[in-house]
Amino acid sequence: MNVLVLGLAITAAQVLLGCAMMFAIFRLLRGPRAQDRILGLDTLYINAMLMLLTFGMQTGRTLYFEAALIIALVGFCGTVALAKFLMRGEVVE
């Protein structure tokens, strides 16, 4: 019973997060401008990180947690580089 309650909740959360990722992908593909696409990408990686955390809860492994940590750090660098690129057209000045 306890397993069922938590299992259903986690599955429902994964469905919601999956839909959220689809919305982000829609914005990433659709645009219309470059800043919208980057915003979509930023949202996408945050949602993916949360999705990994729910997988970690499901399986009880810490591996997923570490993956989520790395996504949180690397995704940040990616978005900053892209935003910088929009501002001046060059990443390294």
Binding site: A13, A20, G40, T43, N47, L50, T54
Partner: peptide
């Protein structure tokens, strides 16, 4: 987990 996923869902729906 449901509140968190719901908030994220609504936030992404804003996109």
């Amino acid at each position: 987990v449901l509140i968190g996923a719901g908030a994220t869902f609504i936030g992404s729906m804003g996109l």
